[in-house]
């Protein structure tokens, strides 16, 4: 990323592809992610979307909140559907368009992983964006594979989740696709540049995993969406990086943190009710994991 010219708030396009007045919750992190990603993709884009909060955000028949053609598809099939869109665009001479799958963490790392893995293995010419709000939010906050350990959800109501978060971007990276990146709703300019870059790398599968705070599911007041998203990154819990043709590099705020002090992860946990039952032991365990991970990062 450092070699590329970075987008600033002043150079970021004013054009809005998402209409206001949609049904997303107040303070929805996905609202920021979706709005920003679509700015980067532009109008020559076709979307495939499985059931998720985005289905609701996108509008109920007959009104759509997005000024893009979109096919809503079944939960497990997003990447396969994007494959089908691409195949048909090639077959009908419209191959210049972006094909973008936009799915939640459950639709990506749980039920959708088979189709996604298949598409990555085939190297389908698609961009897959996963907005990770770390649980099944649209159905009322049930645990998902990407819910962090210790989190209270409606299906882990007493003990909290017993397992660690599934590292979906690493699983996808193991397919050897051209581009894997992580981003955060709290850093829209970093996200914008990554989506732009993904769009420019036509030909193979490109995957972007976006950490997306959810006020209602995580238990915080809606004004803190960006604040908490930033804490996720500055504590070193969720890192901003990209893997371009196998080359890993931290980007943005994460890159700046290498060799510097990070915010203790406890500060992040304290901001959200979903971590209310976290023991000191687990907090320490998580901090230990973050420290071990960061010991491997060099400037």
């Amino acid at each position: 990323m450092d070699n590329d010219k970075k987008t600033t708030v002043l150079t970021l396009t004013d054009e809005e592809i998402v209409n206001p007045g949609n049904r997303a919750c107040s303070g929805c992190g996905l609202g920021i992610v979706y709005r920003t990603a679509l700015k980067a993709l532009g109008k020559d884009t076709v979307l495939a979307v499985p059931p998720s909060c985005l289905t609701v955000l996108q509008g109920l028949y007959p009104v759509a909140s997005t000024k893009l053609p979109c096919v809503n598809v079944t939960f497990a099939s997003t990447a396969a559907a994007a494959t089908g869109v691409r195949a048909a665009l090639r077959a009908t001479g419209r191959d210049h368009l972006n094909v973008v799958a936009f799915a939640g963490d459950g639709g990506t790392g749980d039920i959708g992983i088979q189709a996604l893995s298949g598409a990555c293995e085939r190297g389908e010419d698609i961009i897959y964006i996963c907005y990770d709000n770390e649980a099944y939010m649209n159905t009322g906050v049930q645990r998902s594979g990407t819910t962090p350990k210790g989190v209270m959800t409606t299906t882990t109501p007493i003990k909290g989740k017993l397992q660690h978060k599934k590292d979906v971007p690493s699983i996808i990276a193991a397919h050897g696709i051209d581009y894997v990146a992580t981003a955060s709703a709290a850093y829209p300019l970093d996200l914008y540049d990554k989506v732009k870059k993904a769009a420019s790398m036509k030909g193979g599968t490109r995957y972007i995993h976006v950490h997306t705070p959810c006020p209602s599911g995580w238990g915080f007041a809606p004004q803190y969406t960006v604040h908490i998203g930033k804490l996720g990154v500055t504590t070193g819990l969720f890192d901003l990086y990209e893997i371009v043709k196998g080359e890993f590099s931290l980007t943005g705020e994460s890159a700046k943190r290498v060799g510097k002090e990070r915010t203790p992860v406890e500060e992040y946990f304290k901001t959200q009710r979903r971590f209310r039952s976290l023991s000191q032991e687990l907090t320490d365990e998580m901090q230990g994991m973050i420290d071990a991970k960061w010991a491997n990062y060099t400037a």
Partner: peptide, 9 residues
């Protein structure tokens, strides 16, 4: 899924 999407396209 491929057929659904390609037919829609």
């Amino acid at each position: 899924a491929v057929c659904i999407a390609s037919s829609t396209t």
